[in-house]
Amino acid sequence: MAEQVALSRTQVCGILREELFQGDAFHQSDTHIFIIMGASGDLAKKKIYPTIWWLFRDGLLPENTFIVGYARSRLTVADIRKQSEPFFKATPEEKLKLEDFFARNSYVAGQYDDAASYQRLNSHMNALHLGSQANRLFYLALPPTVYEAVTKNIHESCMSQIGWNRIIVEKPFGRDLQSSDRLSNHISSLFREDQIYRIDHYLGKEMVQNLMVLRFANRIFGPIWNRDNIACVILTFKEPFGTEGRGGYFDEFGIIRDVMQNHLLQMLCLVAMEKPASTNSDDVRDEKVKVLKCISEVQANNVVLGQYVGNPDGEGEATKGYLDDPTVPRGSTTATFAAVVLYVENERWDGVPFILRCGKALNERKAEVRLQFHDVAGDIFHQQCKRNELVIRVQPNEAVYTKMMTKKPGMFFNPEESELDLTYGNRYKNVKLPDAYERLILDVFCGSQMHFVRSDELREAWRIFTPLLHQIELEKPKPIPYIYGSRGPTEADELMKRVGFQYEGTYKWVNP
């Protein structure tokens, strides 16, 4: 592979701008107003304001973009700056750019259920340069409990009458099928589907988006991507930290609602779906819905739930269990780990287990898709061969690698495990991989909904998990304890083995 010439960040961002501006969906010269509902909250200060700053800094926003914060707290732009700027990672050389960014910011205080507050917000936006005809993007960085009041008031008082209007809704989209349907029906009564952007930030990850290209742009994968060759698929999300004093919020939802029903299920769809007619948003989402419709409700015998306990040999936070978090209700049975087996009941995947695993306070930070292939028929190497695996590593250190057998150097035919490896950090030294939120917010500006969740996708996802969630809430089974920093409950490994996964433990990928 030829040595790549190092590029400056300015040059890299210039390439990104060229890609972005050559499309006809990006209205570079139009006025846009980006409204952050819930501007005083954690999500706004840690993710949304920093993301908008990065896009502005790199010249990736339309030229005439204004940012308006809205929340109940009586704040000023200076207050917003004070709480969000520490997350910007701005350099001293960017000081003038930073001043320009905050000059485009404003803030309006108001209630979430008060019509007069929204009329005041609308008047404020109209007073901005060309504000009355601007395109408006409303980001709901809010708890779902206020979605209905907020969307109703936005629709009645704050819509642009000339430009387009788009609304970005953060997960969780309800707690179960019934609450999700209620919320979807409410929002759909106010906005068209092409105006609604239900954001799952995992769909903005580079390697998640790469799944489609790997599958449908490489001839070698087509013939082997089926039940005849693939023994099982494992989708993993692991965090090495616990709730760390923020367990009160987590306890309301648990690990299945927080990660599995959305992030992991979306990745499953991209692995299992048929080739779409095109890369058009609805063509892709149509195929994802077909996959979900082929999955039956989760069966309790295919589920393992766990909850982390303190590690007596650990240090600091590792010595504390979930129930030691003062914000967690006493005696909570909320799971911090889950392993679930699903089956896609169609011709391509009949009988292939899709194993979804996620948890907190585990032994490493990792998100990946792992396809394990069947054993080689007619073994001539005296059971020395391990199964081939194709691994798409989402985070950290984005990579695609194939675990395969090669001859060990020497005189004899002794096979050993090795890999074919594409590590993004080595291959793409001159490429700026956008943060997931950067990519998705740019998608909203461009009107691309491919990486957002459609209402029928959402409904099918909740259909699969709601009976299990209701059973857990009714019966309150005690989750299996696992030690902070471990791989999780051993019962999860036993479940995976029972459905056909072979864990060798003899080879570990190392970032080159």
Rank of each mutant, 00 (worst) to 15 (best):
N153S: 14
L121E: 01
Q133P: 09
E148T: 14
S29I: 15
I224Q: 10
G248M: 05
R72C: 01
L211W: 02
I255E: 05
Q22L: 15
E252M: 11
D113E: 10
P62H: 07
I234D: 05
I255L: 07
R166Q: 00
R136D: 00
S180Q: 05
L177F: 09
I168T: 12
G174R: 02
G38Q: 00
Y139F: 08
E193A: 01
I168E: 04
R192L: 12
E18Y: 07
F253L: 02
I162V: 14
A109I: 13
D181I: 05
I67D: 03
P172D: 02
K205Q: 00
Q83E: 12
V208L: 14
T76P: 05
V150M: 06
A127H: 14
Y249Q: 03
V108I: 14
R175K: 11
L75R: 09
T65E: 00
A78K: 12
I199L: 02
S73A: 12
R215H: 00
E252D: 09
G245D: 07
F241M: 07
N135A: 09
K97M: 13
T31R: 15
F250G: 01
D114R: 10
N153C: 12
V208R: 01
P86A: 12
S188H: 12
F101A: 03
L235D: 00
R120I: 14
K82Y: 11
K238I: 01
I67P: 02
R17W: 08
R166W: 00
D228H: 10
G248D: 00
S160M: 10
R72A: 02
N153R: 13
A127T: 14
Q11D: 15
Y107M: 09
L140R: 01
S184E: 01
A6D: 15
R198D: 04
S29H: 12
A25L: 07
R192P: 13
A115M: 14
V233N: 02
R74C: 15
Q22N: 15
Y147N: 01
F87R: 06
Q119D: 15
M212G: 03
A109V: 12
N64R: 13
K82G: 09
Y112A: 02
N226T: 08
Q209G: 07
R192H: 11
E239L: 03
Q83I: 11
S84H: 09
N64I: 05
H32I: 08
F66P: 06
A90S: 13
L211M: 14
W225G: 02
A103W: 09
L20S: 07
I67V: 15
Q28E: 07
M125W: 00
E206D: 06
C232V: 06
K47G: 00
K82Q: 09
E148R: 10
E93C: 12
A115S: 12
G247N: 05
R198V: 05
T243K: 01
L20W: 06
W225Q: 03
I52T: 06
L235I: 13
G23P: 11
F250S: 05
S180A: 06
H186P: 04
N153M: 11
K97W: 03
L130P: 12
P50S: 08
S117T: 09
R198F: 05
S188N: 13
L130Y: 15
S189L: 11
Y49T: 04
R72G: 02
V68S: 01
A231W: 00
A116Q: 12
L214R: 05
S157E: 10
R9L: 08
M37H: 12
G69K: 04
I162C: 10
E93G: 13
L142N: 04
A103Y: 09
S180D: 01
V169F: 07
I187F: 08
R136I: 07
A149V: 14
A116P: 13
L121K: 02
G131S: 14
T10G: 08
Y70S: 09
F138V: 09
L183M: 07
Y202M: 00
G23M: 14
Y107K: 01
L96T: 13
F88P: 00
S189R: 13
N210D: 10
D176R: 04
A39S: 05
P172F: 03
T145R: 05
G69C: 05
F173A: 05
P62S: 07
V12R: 15
G110I: 01
L235W: 05
S189C: 13
Y49L: 14
F191R: 00
T243G: 08
K47E: 01
L121D: 03
A231C: 08
A90D: 06
G38A: 04
L177Y: 08
C232L: 05
D58A: 09
Q195D: 09
V108H: 11
H201R: 04
G14T: 15
Y49M: 10
L130I: 15
F102M: 08
F241D: 04
Q111L: 13
D228S: 11
I187Q: 04
A25Q: 15
H32D: 07
W53E: 00
I15E: 11
Y249M: 02
F88V: 06
N229P: 00
D114K: 13
T31E: 11
S84P: 03
M212R: 05
P143F: 02
Y70A: 07
K152P: 00
F87G: 06
Q195N: 08
M159K: 14
V108M: 12
I187H: 08
Q11G: 15
G222Q: 13
F221W: 15
A141M: 03
G247C: 07
C232F: 01
